[in-house]
Design a protein around this nucleic acid. Structure first.
Length: 271
DNA sequence: AAAAGCCCCTGGATGC
DNA sequence: TGCATCCAGGGGCTTT
């Protein structure tokens, strides 16, 4: 489910509400991708200072240590003033004096990991190799182009890989490549400076528009307030195999790249 | 070192 | 209706 826009929409939907909250109890349900990394009761009494995002990770800053949260493929968070009994797929609860933060994740590819700090080995193992934040000031055309030139794989794979730029998942990689008119299979190291510039702009544009639309709700994503996203209605190619391209009316094509589906338009993406 | 493949897991859609 | 198969928004780890 969650790419950068969905994670950011989630963050925005509960960051203010949870700021300053004291942790009262922690419930760990069925196993997620990794163990919590500390005894749940050790978190009791600590305060949530802020909620940040790095790539597709959420970072809950505690007054001592941090909680790294990842939504995997099917995860979503909810934050509610009133708590209620957990459902089948509710695998992590953080009960605070300001409300209950709950992770719902049917497939359990998500994770909640405690680390003593952002620079700790536990955190760096997950965050250490992440590329540039696409909506941040450090994501420049020059650095993006240089990053592409270092990669000998398909540009679609580079976007998904997260070592050059983070947060771009399958939906937004397809959409950005369409907007930039670039073939998904193009070798990244053969992208010209002009193409890199177009793709850079497309990535920023599609991600920021998606945040404004509340993300994409394909199956069951919603923000921590329960609000659905609407960007999927604006998708030009993703999930539209065989349907007419919204620009040229040629049928949208589907191909496999690294076990993932790539949607694209052969007529509009010739670069 | 870098790239490609392999899994983790559940549920919904599709086809017979 | 039932059952098998395929597919899904990710990404760390293992194998080439």
């Amino acid at each position: 489910m969650p790419e950068l826009p969905e994670v950011e929409v989630t963050r925005l939907s509960f960051a203010n509400a949870i700021a300053g909250a004291a942790i009262e109890s922690v419930r760990v349900g069925k196993a997620l991708r990794w163990p919590l990394g500390t005894a749940p009761q050790d978190l009791i009494g600590r305060h949530v200072r802020a909620v940040r995002r790095r790539g597709k990770y959420l970072l809950l800053d505690l007054d001592q240590g941090i909680l790294l949260m990842h939504l995997g493929m099917s995860g979503s968070l909810s934050f509610s003033r009133r708590s209620c009994a957990p459902g089948t797929h509710d695998h992590f609860d953080l009960q605070t004096d300001q409300g209950l933060l709950r992770l719902h994740d049917p497939r359990r590819f998500g994770a909640v990991v405690y680390a003593p700090g952002e620079d700790s080995p536990q955190a760096q193992k997950l965050l250490g190799r992440l590329g540039m934040e696409p909506l941040g000031p450090d994501f420049t055309v020059d650095l993006f182009h240089a990053g592409c030139k270092r990669k000998n794989s398909a540009i679609k794979q580079v976007l998904l890989g997260g070592q050059v730029v983070v947060g771009v998942g399958n939906i937004y990689a397809c959409e950005a490549l369409f907007m930039a008119g670039i073939r998904p299979t193009r070798k990244a190291n053969r992208i010209t400076r002009v193409q890199a510039s177009r793709l850079h702009a497309a990535i920023r544009d599609v991600l920021s528009r998606a945040v404004q639309q509340g993300g994409s709700t394909l199956r069951d994503f919603s923000s921590a307030k329960g609000e659905n996203g609407y960007f999927q209605l604006e998708a030009m190619v993703y999930g539209r195999k065989g349907s007419p391209c919204r620009v040229c009316a040629q049928p949208v094509r589907l191909l496999r790249q690294g076990q993932r589906s790539t949607y694209w338009c052969a007529h509009c993406q010739k670069a």
